[in-house]
C-alpha cells in the first residue's frame, strides 16, 4: 500500500548539508502496525513526514496505493493528505490561540461542516481521551500530556486510513499510555494502517506491532 523506493532526503541549510535519509526502501501493507525506532536524529521523523506527504524526497520514489506520488504537485498532495492521513506531531503543533475542541476539529474545516457538527465530532473524541472537561480551554493552557492527546484527537477526527504518530507516548504518564495504547489497538482492529516512531520499545504496544524498522544515521538496519 505504501512503498518507499531508494528514498534519500537531504536538508540544506547554508553550506551544511544533512543527509537525513540515505537510500531507504520500505514497504508497508494496508492495516499494518509499523514502528520506526532508533536514536535521536536517525531520520524517523523525516520518514514520517515523507509518508505523511508533508515534505518531498530528494531522490527516490514514493508510492501510495499504486500511485506514484513523488512528483505530485502541491494541490494534489494536500488533497491526499487531507483525505488519507492523520498526523500526530512530535511537537504537537497545536494552534495556541484556539480552544481544544477547535484545534481538534481543524481538519474538518475544508469540508464545510457546520460548527455544531464539528463540535459534536470533536467532543466525542475528546471524551474517549478523557479530555471533555478541557474542551473550551485554550490549547496553550494545557499540560504537555494533554496537548499530546489533543494532537491525537485532531489526527483521528477525519477518520484517516493512515495514521502517522511521531513519538505518541513520550510525553504522557503511564496511566495515559494505556489510554493511547488502547486507542492504537482499536484503530488497528478497525483496519487502519499505523506508522509510529518510538525511541524505546513500548511494552504496551509491543503485541500490536507487525513490523519494526530500526534506523541509524538515516539508514534502515
Amino acid at each position: 500500500m505504501i512503498k518507499i523506493e531508494n528514498v534519500t532526503k537531504n536538508y540544506e541549510s547554508g553550506k551544511v548539508r544533512i543527509n537525513a535519509l540515505d537510500n531507504v526502501s520500505v514497504e508497508i501493507e494496508r492495516g499494518e502496525f509499523v514502528v520506526l525506532n532508533g536514536p535521536s536524529g536517525s531520520g524517523k521523523t523525516t520518514l514520517l513526514n515523507i509518508i505523511g506527504l508533508l515534505t518531498r524526497v530528494t531522490s527516490g520514489r514514493l508510492w501510495m496505493e499504486n500511485q506514484e506520488v513523488s512528483h505530485y504537485p502541491d494541490h494534489f498532495l494536500s488533497a491526499l493528505r487531507r483525505e488519507k492521513t492523520g498526523f500526530i506531531f512530535q511537537q504537537f503543533n497545536l494552534l495556541p490561540g484556539y480552544t481544544t475542541w477547535e484545534n481538534v476539529s481543524l481538519p474538518l474545516l475544508p469540508m464545510g461542516m457546520s460548527e455544531k457538527t464539528r463540535r459534536t465530532m470533536a467532543m466525542k473524541l475528546l471524551e474517549e481521551l478523557n479530555l471533555e472537561t478541557r474542551a473550551d480551554f485554550m490549547a496553550n493552557e494545557l499540560s504537555g500530556g494533554e496537548q499530546q492527546r489533543v494532537a491525537i484527537a485532531r489526527a483521528l477526527i477525519n477518520d484517516p486510513e493512515i495514521i502517522l504518530a511521531d513519538e505518541p507516548l513520550s510525553n504522557i504518564d503511564t496511566g495515559h499510555v494505556t489510554i493511547v495504547a488502547d486507542i492504537l489497538a482499536e484503530l488497528k482492529r478497525r483496519g487502519k494502517t499505523i506508522i509510529t516512531s518510538f525511541h524505546h520499545s513500548q511494552a504496551q504496544v509491543d503485541k500490536l506491532v507487525d513490523k519494526t524498522f530500526r534506523f541509524d544515521s538515516g539508514r534502515v538496519l
Binding site: 540544506e12 518531498r56 524526497v57 530528494t58 531522490s59 513523488s70 512528483h71 504537485p73 502541491d74
Partner: peptide, 13 residues
C-alpha cells in the same frame, strides 16, 4: 516536472 530539486518546488509555488 521530474526534478526533485528545491528550485523546482520554488517554481511550483
Amino acid at each position: 516536472i521530474t526534478s526533485h530539486a528545491d528550485a523546482q518546488y520554488r517554481l511550483e509555488k
